[in-house]
């Protein structure tokens, strides 16, 4: 999977960055190491305008209807959704756990906020992920610098505002370094 940049079409509304949609699904019945995780990850579309985004997104299965152990990632062009990528190595992510049935609305609000540059943290945001699991769904937003508390606080506050989360929603921040050590995303 190599990243190739795209241009906004004539008359379309450009985005601040190029983004890629990635999809990954864990094969049933076995644990994944880092290389097999990467191998199961596919770029399914690249976009640099609002219209290009909708053309891809409108053809995707809604997050509420995804099954199995699957993830959809939207990352800036050139950044792989992997802890080890150089943009992510010193970063981390906010994690929001959602009861079943809520994820499609929250996921759409999260990516619209990211594409529309609502987080106001410069180049800090790397991408966003929706993770479909057996008992709950999880959305997360990744940023470059886990130790920049002003940045991570601003991301959390924006996340709360744009997701309009139910009361008692649990949010947690996890550094990718911690994830690398315990080999677990959540």
């Amino acid at each position: 999977c190599t990243f190739e940049d795209v241009e906004p079409g004539a008359g379309e509304h450009p985005l601040q960055y190029t983004y890629c949609f990635w999809y990954s699904k864990k094969p049933p019945g076995r644990n994944q190491d880092a290389s097999s995780f990467e191998k199961n990850m596919k770029i399914i579309g690249t976009f640099r305008s609002v219209e290009q985004f909708w053309r891809i997104y409108s053809h995707m299965i809604r997050a509420n209807d995804l099954t199995g152990h699957s993830d959809v990632h939207v990352f800036k062009g050139g950044i792989k959704p992997l802890w080890e990528d150089k943009a992510n190595r010193l970063g981390g992510k906010w994690i929001v756990r959602l009861r079943k049935g809520l994820v499609a609305r929250c996921w759409e609000n999260l990516i619209l906020a990211m594409l529309g540059e609502q987080f106001m943290v410069g180049d800090e945001v790397c991408g966003a992920v929706v993770s479909i699991r057996f008992q709950e769904d999880i959305i997360s937003i990744w940023n470059r610098s886990a130790n920049e508390s002003q940045v991570t606080s601003r991301i959390r506050d924006t996340l709360c505002r744009v997701l309009n989360l139910p009361p008692n929603t649990v949010m947690e921040y996890k550094t990718h370094n911690e994830s690398l050590k315990d080999r677990s995303s959540f």
């Binding site: 450009p14 219209e51 609000n109």
Partner: peptide, 21 residues
């Protein structure tokens, strides 16, 4: 530099444009 900012309602409005389909 200048950043390209869009709010949610503008992005949703673009969805119904013929170019987005």
């Amino acid at each position: 530099g200048t950043r390209i900012i869009y709010d949610r309602s503008f992005l949703l409005k673009c969805r119904s444009s013929p170019m987005a389909n």
